[in-house]
Design a protein around this nucleic acid. Structure first.
Length: 198
DNA sequence: AAGTAACG
DNA sequence: TTGG
């Protein structure tokens, strides 16, 4: 386990078979709730494609960010796959399941600017992240924007925990090593982030 | 400020 | 390595 600014990085936690099974589960999620491209409140399209599973999905809007109980199409989000909940039980808790599993797809040029996951009502539970597919260069800062940052390469099967003092740490993705994994037939990276929202 | 620019 |  690597620790960076309080963030736990568990390398290679899911084996290949588990990664393949989870990727299959996520294909089913994306069939029910297709990926869409979010637009920031100030009108800039994000480069990631996004969907979600669970009670809520994370959404952008003109008024800001929020959690919503329905996909933009109007359908409810599909349930969080059991394969994902199993990782949550192992790293977080068996007593409380996440309300939201965000599914972010990073294509070749996709990135994610430095930000904090701060739209939840309850910060007492950690955010759990699972990486699948191509490697991505992950940047981790501190609680304050402007704090020094460090980078770590996240690869398929890695699990990251942001909890406790690191729950509100800044983080982002600088670059995808497109084609660096054979997990996803069309390449790219999928990142799951599970959160307790309320 | 979940955009952008930068691997170190 | 935050600065813009």
């Amino acid at each position: 386990m690597i620790e960076i600014n309080g963030v736990e990085v568990h390398k290679g936690w899911l084996d290949r078979a588990a990664q393949e099974a989870m990727a299959g589960d996520l294909r089913r999620v994306a069939l029910a709730a297709p990926f869409f491209q979010p637009v920031t409140p100030w009108g800039k399209p994000m480069s990631v494609r996004m969907t979600a599973a669970g009670k809520y999905g994370w959404m952008t809007g003109k008024g800001g960010y929020h959690y919503a109980a329905r996909h933009p199409s109007g359908v409810a989000w599909p349930p969080i796959p059991e394969s994902v909940l199993a990782v949550w039980r192992r790293f977080v808790s068996a007593e409380r399941m996440p309300d939201c599993c965000l599914v972010n797809y990073y294509g070749e040029k996709a990135r994610m600017g430095l930000h904090r996951d701060a739209d939840e009502a309850d910060f007492s539970w950690p955010v759990l992240s699972i990486s699948l597919g191509d490697p991505g260069l992950f940047r981790i800062g501190g609680t304050e924007r402007g704090d020094p940052t460090r980078s770590v390469l996240l690869e398929s099967g890695d699990v990251v925990l942001m909890g406790g003092p690191a729950r509100l740490v800044h983080h982002g993705v600088d670059r995808i090593r497109f084609g660096g994994s054979t997990l996803l037939p069309k390449g790219g990276r999928i990142n799951l982030t599970c959160r307790v929202v309320d």
